[in-house]
Structure formats: structure tokens, C-alpha cells
């Protein structure tokens, strides 16, 4: 796997606040790197720096595109979180304009557009104006706009927001396809289940600083704990005295027992008292969502 983008120690300061603080990461061909973090963590600023919309105050951003380490915007695609297109323009005109700005051959772009129209249920609507489309339809057009020039590096910011579940599945497949074809993808989202299902590696940022970076499995191993969801008639106090339980949360009928690090489910089950009332029990490795909440808010996990 070859590296397509390496970010080295970038810092961006707006006025008195350091929005991005000595951030380094890499994105490789064919992988999907998840960029996660709470609102205002600095994700958008990082993305804007990567795309050359703004420049970091220090540090360097190096691309490996076309034997040059500079940003070549015609090889880079971007789906911004702020959704919108020229409302009074026709779908095909906008797509051709973007392709033109990206120096992509227009006849090729037209063919690609047709393919996606077919795939995304937009066939025959190429001359429709954006303002006549539903919001979801317009977002599909915007997605096409971000990939029409076959980018080698693609930034997707909340790619699924606003789509119905059926469309979401189509786009998840499409994103996987792009990665399988070798596109390097940076995916920023708050939808942790999607990040978990799509991304090979995760970069988590909080208050401008890196808090987690690595393969999803490694991160989970490092956080290495399980949680047990238990439904039954039990006294919470006695539950908290069970062996290996570090913390408990109560959620209506269900009680969530957080296990200590490095405790496997087998060890936990073998030590359960016989008088425990179990109506339902689920033991899962903690999710990215839990890790996110734990890391960002300093440990209050409540699911």
C-alpha cells in the first residue's frame, strides 16, 4: 500500500486559538481513513488545509500524485459538509463545469455522469435544474460532482447525512468500490457505526490535538474492554461489586456493566454468581462510539 498523502506536524492558528495543533497522519491508496472528533475539534480546518483552501501556519502536507509532492487539485475530490449547488443551473452543466475546473476531459466526464445517473436513479434528468430537485437528489448530484474526475484522493465530509437508508446503502457500496479501485479516501463523520463499518483506520482529534490514531482493531484492542448489557431483577449495588466490573450505567430496564481492561468475556462469565437474574444478556467489545464518547468527554459512556 503506497502513501498518497502525508501530513506532517501541521498547525493552524486563528487569532488566539490554536485550531489545529501539530497534527500528523497519512492516507494510503485504497484505504478509507476515518477522521472523527467532536464539533469544533478542527476537522474542517484540517480538510481545508489538505485541499489548499487555506494554508497551515506550520508543518507540511505532501502528496504523492503524478511524481510531484504538491497538491494537484485535478486529482483530488471533495464532498463538503455544507451541501449546495448552483440552484439555477442544470445538473449536467454543473457537473461539466466542475469537470472542467478539474481539467478532466469533458466527453469522458459526460460518460461517467451518465453511468452514475443510471446507478443513482437520476437517468433522464440531466437537464433538470437543481432547484427543482429534492434535497436527497441534489446530494446525489453533489456526490457525483466530487468523483466525476476520477480523483486519486477523495475527501468525504458527512457523506451520508440526509440520505434515506436505501440510498445510504447504495453510497456505502459506492465508497467501498472506489476504495477497492485504489482511491485513497478520507472520511469525516459523526456517524460512528458507518465509520466503523467503512474505515480501515481512524484518526480522532479533539480540541485540535490528536487523541487516537491507528487501525480500528488495534484501537479497540488497546481500549481492550468489553461491556455487558444485562436485563433482569438485580440490585445495582450488588452488581457493582461483581468481580472485573469497573463501572455500571443504568438505562431503563437494562444495566450496562463495563468490564475492566484485559478481561475476556469467559473470565467474566465464569465468575458470575448463580443467583444473578438474567433475562437477557449481551456481551460486546466496546464500539467506536463508546471509545469516542469516553475519549472526548473523559469517560462517561452511556449507550
Amino acid at each position: 500500500m503506497s502513501t498518497i498523502l502525508s501530513v506532517d506536524n501541521i498547525t493552524k492558528i486563528f487569532g488566539k486559538s490554536t485550531v489545529v495543533d501539530r497534527i500528523s497522519f497519512e492516507v494510503n491508496r485504497g484505504e478509507i481513513l476515518g477522521l472523527v472528533g467532536p464539533n469544533g475539534a478542527g476537522k474542517s480546518t484540517i480538510i481545508r488545509c489538505l485541499l489548499g483552501i487555506i494554508h497551515p501556519d506550520s508543518g507540511s502536507i505532501n502528496y504523492s500524485l503524478d511524481n510531484s509532492n504538491k497538491l494537484n487539485s485535478s486529482k483530488v475530490g471533495y464532498l463538503p459538509e455544507e451541501r449546495g449547488l448552483y440552484k439555477d443551473a442544470k445538473i449536467i452543466d454543473i457537473l461539466m463545469y466542475i469537470a472542467n475546473l478539474k481539467n478532466y476531459p469533458l466527453d469522458k466526464a459526460r460518460r461517467t455522469a451518465e453511468e452514475y445517473f443510471e446507478k443513482l436513479d437520476l437517468k433522464g434528468r440531466d437537464k433538470v435544474k437543481i432547484q427543482e430537485l429534492s434535497k436527497g437528489m441534489a446530494q446525489k448530484v453533489q456526490f457525483i460532482a466530487s468523483i466525476i474526475h476520477e480523483p486519486e484522493f477523495l475527501v468525504l465530509d458527512e457523506p451520508l447525512s440526509g440520505f434515506d437508508p436505501v440510498s445510504q446503502n447504495i453510497f456505502i457500496e459506492e465508497i467501498k468500490n472506489l476504495a477497492a479501485k485504489g482511491t485513497a479516501i478520507l472520511l469525516s463523520s459523526h456517524q460512528m457505526n458507518m465509520v466503523e463499518s467503512l474505515c480501515n483506520r481512524i484518526f480522532m482529534i479533539n480540541k485540535g490535538q490528536r487523541v487516537l490514531y491507528g487501525r480500528l482493531n488495534d484501537i479497540k484492542d488497546r481500549h481492550g474492554s468489553y461491556k455487558c448489557e444485562l436485563t433482569g431483577e438485580n440490585d445495582p449495588h450488588s452488581l457493582s461489586r461483581l468481580p472485573y466490573v469497573s463501572r455500571i450505567d443504568k438505562d431503563d430496564q437494562t444495566i450496562i456493566l463495563h468490564l475492566e481492561n484485559n478481561i475476556t468475556p469467559n473470565m467474566f462469565i465464569s465468575e458470575l454468581p448463580s443467583d444473578l437474574d438474567i433475562k437477557e444478556m449481551n456481551i460486546n467489545r466496546i464500539s467506536l462510539h463508546d471509545i469516542f464518547v469516553k475519549t472526548v468527554s473523559g469517560g462517561v459512556v452511556n449507550e
Binding site: 485541499l51 483552501i53 483530488v76 471533495y78 463538503p80 455544507e82 449547488l85 448552483y86 466542475i98
Partner: peptide, 16 residues
């Protein structure tokens, strides 16, 4: 103003 209103700025500025 319209460029901003239509929220095309970022997409355009990521290209030029």
C-alpha cells in the same frame, strides 16, 4: 453572495 448562498464555495475552491 450567491456563491456563498448556494454553498458552492468549498467545492470550487478545492479546485481553483
Amino acid at each position: 453572495l450567491q456563491e456563498k448562498k448556494d454553498k458552492m464555495v468549498e467545492l470550487v475552491l478545492s479546485s481553483i
